[in-house]
Each structure stands twice: as structure tokens, then as C-alpha cells.
Design a protein around this nucleic acid. Structure first.
Lengths: 199, 199
DNA sequence: CTCTGTCAACTGTCTAGTTAGTTGATAATC
DNA sequence: GATTATCAACTAACTAGACAGTTGACAGAG
């Protein structure tokens, strides 16, 4: 086997991303990740330390990628939401990872676990982008370019969730199942956001 | 220990509900459920057949309770959303169960699992209520009492998600963390729904 | 030679599911 | 009304496999 540290690391990360997205932290199998990456289980511990740390690394990378790849445009929140929806469609693992992270690595009391498993660190780039986004929205509201019916953080939160409305991880019983074309979906999402932010 | 089949079954269900809400299907421990219920592991298999079936039972009961306890009022969707939000606040396990169900029991391809674990059945009462709700919304739209900017199923879907905006399982990085009073939260949710449904 | 990357095999623990047997209530039999 | 049979409810102990994490050896590159 050719020696290639960066390549192995990247293959492990990619395999871990798929595995965690599919099965979550508790359901993921370290052996499966190693096998999928064409590597060895020991490599995972060599490179990432533990299963939990591997998950945190995968999650942080995914979120940072998303934030960098789909920057918020405060002057076009409807378009931003539509772009997000397309990112989610293009990579269905993304929102699943987010959901797993909320459920399994969030700040819940975790009544009693073997090892005190503390919540994972939040990815720096994503946190900063979010804070900046809230500030921009607040400013636009102050200038009357956006409705101030809602607090800025609530508004951003709502926009992010509306963008995720079509993701498989959001589907509920109200879902007819008939697949809406991307363009139509984007139009609906943009219109909904417009309904919320129009001054 | 007094013998009480119904009581034991109920205690097991309640313990399972907490356990599954906290840890999900893969993370839940059958032994813990039995211990919490003050019962025995074998009773779980006696009453429910398997861990998966126990989860499905818990989930169906939770969803049916919710649907029955918070019926949709097509003439007051904003109020309906606010009521939902209060139900979610009152029982934080509810939306966690829904999230776990989507992630772990949904119709995903499940790349390869030991046993062919097919997706769980959808609770009858909830499905019927949802279909009825969509029909009512469509009718109200046809009569001009609700905006027809959005298809009826999309509208209901959006309303359900907006109601869940404040649930811990939805919190993302845009979340400031400062707890909004229930009344203020309900007002915001109702306003958002109004923005979407006003003709 | 030595350091880094790699891996097969191993370990101790955990876990879903099973089993064989016990207990208590109810009901039939004398 | 006492004795016995029956069955549902219950339990402790067990099994077989799965799992996260470890080790020690080995190989290629500088």
C-alpha cells in the first residue's frame, strides 16, 4: 500500500462522514469506516484519537464548508435561503449530520453515560459567520431594509429552518412524497422568506 | 412485587420513551429501560417483541397523543402553531423522538445492516389527521380564507416546522440562548404563520 | 538507523436477545 | 372450604456475538 498520510486521512474523513450521516454517532461502526476508507481501524485512532473526536472533526468540517460555500447575503435573504436549499439537496448528508449532532452531541443532561461525554466544540468559522449574519440583519432592520417584526437572531434562525424544509431529514407526515422540481422548491422557499422579511 | 400486566407495560413504555428520547434507537439500552421501569429485560421482549418494535410503539403512541391533544384549527393556523409550540415546550421528549425516528427509522437506503431493518409503520391516527388537515387547508384556500401562494401540503409542513422553531432539537448556531418567555415566543410563531397564510 | 505510516490480531467489555425456572392469582374438583 | 391444576406475570442467569480501543510488529523513505 502506497504511503500517503494526507490521502489516508482524507479517505477516513470522507468514509466517516458517510457513516455518521447514515447511522449517527452511536450507530456508526468504526470498523465499517476503516473498511470503507480502504484503511485500518488503528489509523482512525492514530489520526483522530477517538470515535467522538472523529465525529466532531467531521461535523466541524461539514459545517465550515457549508458556511464558506453559501455565504449569507443580507440584501437577498430569499435568495440565500434558496441557495441553502440547493446545497442541502446537493449533499443530503449535511443536514443529517447536523441533526445527529444536535441529538447526540448537544448540551443535553445525558442522564448517565459511561464516560462523561461532554458536548463537542462548535466550529469556529460557523459561529463567527452566524454572529456576523445576525449583526448584519439587525443593521438592515434598523435601516428599514428588513422587517423588524422579528428579532434578528430569530429571523436568521427561521430562514435557516425554512431552507431546510425540503430536506429528507425534515420530512414529516404532511409530506405528499411527490418530488417538487428544484426550481419550484426554490421559488416557494424564497417566497416564504420574503413573507417574513419584507418591511 | 405485585403482579400487574397493564401497569408493567405502561411503566416499560414510559421508561422507553425517556430512554429513546435521550439516546435514540441505537444509543438506548434495553437493560436501562428495564431497570428504570423497575422491571425485567425479558418483559420487554414478552410485551414488545424487540427493541425496534418497542421504539415504534413508543413513537406511534407519542405522535397519536400529540395529534389528538392538539388538533388543527384551519380557521386559526397561527393559534394552532402556538399551541403546538406549547406542547413541544411542555414535553421536550416529543420532538427528539420525532427526530430520532426520522433519522433512524426513516426510509433511508441503510447501506447495509445486519438484519434488514425496515422502516417502522407510521401511526394511523397521525396520518389521517394530517391528510384531513391538508384537505381542510386546500378547501380554505379555494374559498379565499387562506393564501394560495403555497400548496396546501407545503403550507401545513411549514406551519409544523415553524411551531418547532423553539424546540431544543431545532436550535442552531443562530440561537442566542436567552430564553424567550412562552407568551412572546407564541406571539412570534403566530405572526410568522400569519405572514404565510394571510390571503 | 530511525521515523512515520500501516496493519492484523488481540482484549476486555458491553449488549440484544434467550432460557429455564419461580411465583402468585384464579378457577376447577372433590 | 380445602386441594390441586393452570396459566399469566415475572426473574436471574446465561449466551453468542459485536464493539471501541490497543498493541506490537513491519515496511518504506530520508
Amino acid at each position: 500500500m502506497a504511503r500517503n498520510a494526507d490521502g489516508t486521512r482524507a479517505r477516513l474523513l470522507s468514509a466517516a462522514r458517510h457513516e455518521f450521516a447514515a447511522f449517527g454517532l452511536a450507530g456508526a461502526r468504526v470498523d465499517r469506516i476503516a473498511a470503507d476508507a480502504g484503511s485500518n481501524k488503528a489509523q482512525i485512532y492514530y489520526y483522530f484519537g477517538s470515535k467522538d473526536q472523529l465525529f466532531d472533526t467531521v461535523f466541524a468540517a461539514a459545517l465550515d464548508d457549508l458556511v464558506r460555500g453559501t455565504p449569507m447575503d443580507v440584501n437577498d435573504l430569499p435568495g440565500f435561503a434558496a441557495q441553502l436549499a440547493e446545497a442541502y439537496e446537493h449533499d443530503p448528508d449535511l443536514l443529517r449530520l447536523v441533526s445527529w449532532q444536535r441529538l447526540e452531541r448537544g448540551a443535553r443532561r445525558e442522564r448517565r453515560e459511561r464516560r462523561e461525554r461532554r458536548a463537542g466544540p462548535t466550529p469556529r468559522a460557523a459561529v463567527e459567520a452566524t454572529q456576523a449574519g445576525i449583526a448584519q440583519i439587525a443593521q438592515a432592520q434598523a435601516q428599514g431594509r428588513l422587517s423588524d417584526r422579528y428579532p434578528a437572531d430569530v429571523l436568521l434562525h427561521a430562514v435557516l429552518h425554512i431552507a431546510a424544509l425540503w430536506a429528507p431529514a425534515s420530512r414529516d407526515l404532511a409530506w405528499s412524497g411527490k418530488p417538487l422540481p428544484s426550481a419550484a422548491r426554490d421559488r416557494i422557499i424564497a417566497q416564504m422568506v420574503l413573507d417574513l422579511v419584507a418591511p
